[in-house]
Each structure stands twice: as structure tokens, then as C-alpha cells.
Design a protein around this nucleic acid. Sequence first.
DNA 1: TAGATTGTTAATCGATTAACAATC
DNA 2: TAGATTGTTAATCGATTAACAATC
Lengths: 215, 215
Amino acid sequence: MEDYMKVGKVSDAVIRRLPRYYRELLVLRTQGVERVSSEKLAARMRLNASQVRQDFNCFGGFGQQGYGYNVTSLLSEVRRILALNREYKLVIVGAGNMGHALANFEGFANDGFHVVALFDNNEALIGKEINGKPVLSVATLGDYIRANGVDIGVITARRSFAQELADAMIEAGIKGIWNFAPIDIEGEVAIENVHLSDILCALTYRMEHGNEAEE
Amino acid sequence: MEDYMKVGKVSDAVIRRLPRYYRELLVLRTQGVERVSSEKLAARMRLNASQVRQDFNCFGGFGQQGYGYNVTSLLSEVRRILALNREYKLVIVGAGNMGHALANFEGFANDGFHVVALFDNNEALIGKEINGKPVLSVATLGDYIRANGVDIGVITARRSFAQELADAMIEAGIKGIWNFAPIDIEGEVAIENVHLSDILCALTYRMEHGNEAEE
DNA sequence: TAGATTGTTAATCGATTAACAATC
DNA sequence: TAGATTGTTAATCGATTAACAATC
């Protein structure tokens, strides 16, 4: 194992901040900023400078005393830590409105995420194309994943199908699942459950109870 | 102020769990379950029973010793706490794929969220309808919010417009903002920033580094 | 009453923040 | 060298978990 792979158990809070660092560093690079101190980066992100240094030091010493962090090299370290320095094949299961939106998601463009196909059980959709990607029958999902080495499965199907779709994809060797159905998918791969309704409810809570604790 | 309104400062972690309780209680009610103990509820949600009791006791004593919690009445308490016992008017700013998907979002159906209009600056879209809702010019956004008492603004516009759209909506008296643009919107109202790319990056992190710390 | 389970206080654990020696 | 800023240890803060008296 390479030296830079030796990371201890990293807390969920740190993992959630990594993509934010990545995003902020992209902005800094776009602005042509060459170096940044933990203090400046923290101020931009409304974090604490100690926290920024602690976070990066979970993975290695990327800074230099008296100088700070080189934006370009820190960016490339964070990319590597997030495993964004490779390509991913995605399938979207459920070709409804949400599946449609994700098939056109610009956020995929930059970071090597390639939607290779959508799946649905609606005969009217099967055989069509969405954003140039074929819509296939859910019956062929497992075989397609195996045959094409698909990495990530995105679930936008209804709640009642979500877990069995996940099981089928895991069985077929998928590495990660990004679930938008309103149920907590479980399984022995990396899973991110996104509950849009939950976020909306948190919003109404804050609208009602005041906004001090915002994010 | 009513007695039940007296809540101290509630941590973000608790607020994030409230919608999950709500969702789980809806399932229990659907299954016809009449009462539930903190232990059973915790087991279903993979939480700790103490935590469940602590969480509810931020807002009041909803249980009964030796009995547990009545599902129906707890559900109605959580609904009230989340401020879901009223109706909300929403506008969606940005009638692209994501705006389109949200205009059709089923999660809105149950909980009194009503999308009343979409806004875009694309002349080709203005005047059209999406899911029966008019697409209007962004130039009329502020006036529309004022005239119709819109509660929540959903931003699915591009990054470069997002903050100024938020500012305009806040100026017009909006109460909450649900932002999907890849930037952290700031303002003196309740705001939820959803960064789908960030979640996807957290997924690839876990795919690469193993899944022990999953959610 | 006896059993169950809450509400609540205390203990533990982990994450954030502060401090500072190391060093560029 | 002097100044700046890291990496890292220690202190603090807050959230989670355990324990148990109260009570239905």
C-alpha cells in the first residue's frame, strides 16, 4: 500500500467537508490564486482555521510552514482523496422526471462521471433516448452492469422498488449506490441516500423556529 | 407564546433527524401500529433509544411511562414541530431539467407544498406551462412573490445568478430558500443549500476508502 | 401490584477550537 | 534572521450513550 493511502478512520463530518474544500479550491484556482493559508480558506468557508488544518492532516501534511497551501497541489490531493482522479460509469434506474434531470446534470460533466444508460419498466420509454443515452428494460439491469463494468447506480425509482433494485445491482457487482427514493437503502457497498423531502422539512422547521442554527 | 412553542436551542443534528422520525412514523401509521417504544423506534432507524427520547424531549414529553409513544399523536407533534401543519406556496426559479423535475416532485404532494409558478429568462420557455404551472419571466419574480405571498423559493438556476436571485426573493419577502445551484447562498432567511455534486463526491470517497463509516 | 418504559441526570465519547513549538 | 503559518498536542465544547428514579 502506498504511503499516501495510510489514512485512519476519518469521521463523517470530515468526509462531508472534503467536497466543499474541493469546490472552494476550484474557485480559488479559477481566480488564479496560487497559495492560501488555512486562515483564509477557513474564512471563505466560514470554518475555523484549526479545523481546516486538522481536516487535511487526516490525510497528510499538504502545507508548508510560513507559506500555507499551494492551491493547485492541494486541489490535486483533494481530488485524489475523493477518488475523482478516475472515470466512473453510471446507470440511472428510473427514467422519470428526476432520472431525466440527473441524466442532464452538469455536475457530472467535469468530474469523470459518465451516464451510460437509463433503465425503466415503462414500455413506452424503453428504446427511447434521453440526452443521447438509451433507456433499457429493468429486466436487463444486472446483465448490463456485469457486461459493462458499471460503477455507480442511481436510483430514482419509487420507494417500493428501491431496495430490490439496489440488491440486484449489488449482486451484479456495482460499487456505489446513489439513492433518491424516500427510503434508506441498505447494502454492503457505498451508499448515499438523499431525501429531498427531509431537506425541505428541515427548511420549514427553520422558517418556523428561526434561523440561528443555520447549517 | 403557547407553552408548546418553548423550545431551547435545538442542535442541527436533532433537526436533521426530525424528518426521519416523521417518515418512520408515517410508515408505522400505514402499518396500523398504534404505539411504539423509543427502543423499537430506535432499532428501526438504527439509532440509540436514549437518543430518541432526548430528541423528542427537546420539544416536550410526548411519551408515557410503561407505554411508550402513541404513533398517531407523536406523528402529529412532529408534524407541528416541523411546521408541516400549514400550506406553503413555492416558486421554482430556473425551468431547466432540475426545475422541471422538482415541479413534478411527488414529495410535495402530501405535505401542503404547492408550486405556484416557475421562472426563467429563456424566452422560449416563458409563457409555457410545466405540470400545469406557468413559466414566467424572471423580471417579474419579485412582484409575483409580493403579490401572491409566496413562502419558499427554489433555485435551480446557474451558479452565477443564484445569489442575486436569492437577494431579490428575500427583498420581496420570501421566507425560505431551497438552493440547488452549486454555491452556498447566504441571507437572513432560512436557507437550505443542496449540493448534489458534493454527495456524489462523498460516495466516491466511500467507494475508494471502504464503507465502515457509512452515514 | 409488577412490569415496562419514560424523562432526565450523569458519564462518555468524539469533534471542534485553542495554543504553541517546529520550521519554512 | 524575523515573520508567517503549519502540524500537532491539549483544552473545550457539544452530542451521544448509559443509568436510574419516576410513574404509568
